[in-house]
C-alpha cells in the first residue's frame, strides 16, 4: 500500500506552507475529477472518464498518491478494452483511495 509517498512530497518545490497549498489544491481538484469519473460511469460517458482518469493519474502522482495514480492508470488502460463493469469497480476503488489520501493529508500535513 502506498497511499501518500512522503519522499515524493519532500522533493516538491516550495516550503511547508506551499506544500499545504499544493495538497489543498490537489484535494479540491481530485474531488472534482472523481465526481467527473463517477458521473461518467452513471452516464456511460467514456470520454469523460478517460479524460478525468488521465488528469488524476498525473496529478496524484505529482503529490505521491501512488495507489490512486495506479488505479487511474488502470482505468485509462481499461478504456481501450471497453470493460465497463470493471471500470465502474475501479472508479469506486479510486473514490476509496482518494479518501485515504485525504485523511492521510489531513493527519500528516493539514492539521
Amino acid at each position: 500500500m502506498n497511499i501518500l509517498d512522503t519522499e515524493v512530497l519532500q522533493l516538491l518545490p516550495g516550503d511547508a506552507q506551499m506544500l499545504q497549498k499544493i495538497l489543498n489544491v490537489f484535494l479540491k481538484s481530485s474531488e472534482k475529477l472523481m465526481v467527473m469519473m463517477e458521473e461518467g460511469v452513471e452516464n456511460s460517458n467514456m470520454d469523460q472518464i478517460a479524460h478525468a482518469a488521465h488528469t488524476l493519474k498525473s496529478s496524484s502522482a505529482m503529490v505521491g498518491a501512488m495507489d490512486l495514480s495506479e488505479l487511474c492508470q488502470q482505468i485509462e488502460a481499461a478504456m481501450h478494452d471497453d470493460e465497463c463493469s470493471r471500470i465502474s469497480v475501479m472508479v469506486q476503488q479510486s473514490r476509496h483511495a482518494r479518501q485515504l489520501v485525504e485523511s492521510e493529508c489531513h493527519s500528516l500535513y493539514l492539521k
Binding site: 516538491l12 518545490p13 516550495g14 506551499m18 497549498k21 499544493i22 489544491v25 490537489f26 479540491k28 481538484s29 488528469t55 498525473s58 496529478s59 505529482m62 503529490v63
Partner: peptide, 11 residues
C-alpha cells in the same frame, strides 16, 4: 490540472 500548474509555477 491546477496541481501541475501550481507545482511548476512554484518551481
Amino acid at each position: 490540472d491546477p496541481v501541475s500548474l501550481l507545482v511548476m509555477a512554484e518551481s
